[in-house]
């Protein structure tokens, strides 16, 4: 068996094209993650407010985002919204909308959980030490919330990066799509290209996600002890 498939990667500017696709993947995931974290923190704090109406509304939003497959959401926005509302959104914009809606919901729930997991006596012992309310939050509650939050937020980040592979389906040319194009173009000259190209894509996802999830593990270990 000749190794034509492996050669394909280095043929022409195929590797550069793959990296270009990876850049689209990274751009969509990282912007979505960043906005989701920001909005999720706000949503999470809103979710801890003691109001029935707010709780019900946020719960419905969260469950809706969780239960619906991301692919369906992508289709609803990309194919549905354009027709119904007569607005023209391209694939990338649809991807941003869906991933931010989804990420905000998930992140909001993580933040809510982290705040509620701080025991009541942490608030009380700070108060009993004569700290003002904002000092209790600043020195005691927020540092502990962030510690609990970061490992989970990073796991969510890697999940979102992986899930962006779905946007192929709405025609966004990201890393996976570029791979498919290269495979198609060389279908006759290198029939085994699929293995090699997807192998490289696998590796590309790995080098993006691994450091992030490794960081999560390290932080988890470091903070588990205190």
């Amino acid at each position: 068996m000749d190794n034509m498939g492996l050669g394909i990667i280095f043929e022409g500017n195929n590797l550069l094209r793959l990296l270009g696709g990876l850049w689209i993947t990274i751009k969509i995931s990282f912007i979505s993650v960043f906005v989701s974290i920001f909005l999720g923190i706000i949503l999470g704090m809103i979710m801890t407010v003691n109001s029935r109406i707010i709780r019900v509304i946020t719960k419905i939003y969260l469950e809706f985002m969780r239960i619906t497959p991301q692919l369906v959401l992508l289709f609803v926005i990309y194919f549905g919204a354009t027709k119904v509302f007569g607005i023209d959104i391209d694939g990338q914009t649809s991807a941003f909308i869906v991933f931010i809606l989804w990420g905000t919901a998930e992140m909001g729930d993580l933040v809510r959980g982290a705040i509620l997991s701080i025991p009541k006596h942490q608030f009380e012992s700070g108060t009993a030490l004569a700290l003002k309310k904002h000092q209790v939050y600043l020195y005691i509650i927020i540092p502990q919330t962030i510690r609990r939050l970061i490992p989970q937020a990073i796991n969510l980040t890697t999940r979102m990066i992986k899930t962006t592979s779905l946007i192929v389906m709405i025609g966004v040319v990201e890393v996976l799509k570029v791979g498919q194009q290269i495979i198609e173009a060389n279908r006759y000259t290198a029939p085994d290209a699929a293995l090699w190209i997807y192998g490289v894509i696998f590796f590309l996802y790995f080098i993006v996600c691994y450091p992030i999830s490794k960081a999560a593990t390290i932080l988890e270990k470091k903070w588990a002890s205190n």
């Binding site: 006596h121 942490q122 009380e124 012992s125 009993a128 005691i140 540092p143 502990q144």
Partner: peptide, 13 residues
């Protein structure tokens, strides 16, 4: 007024 509680209430971080 100093107060000490039942729960171990040191700040863990």
């Amino acid at each position: 007024i100093g107060m000490v509680f039942q729960s171990y209430d040191l700040f863990p971080h």
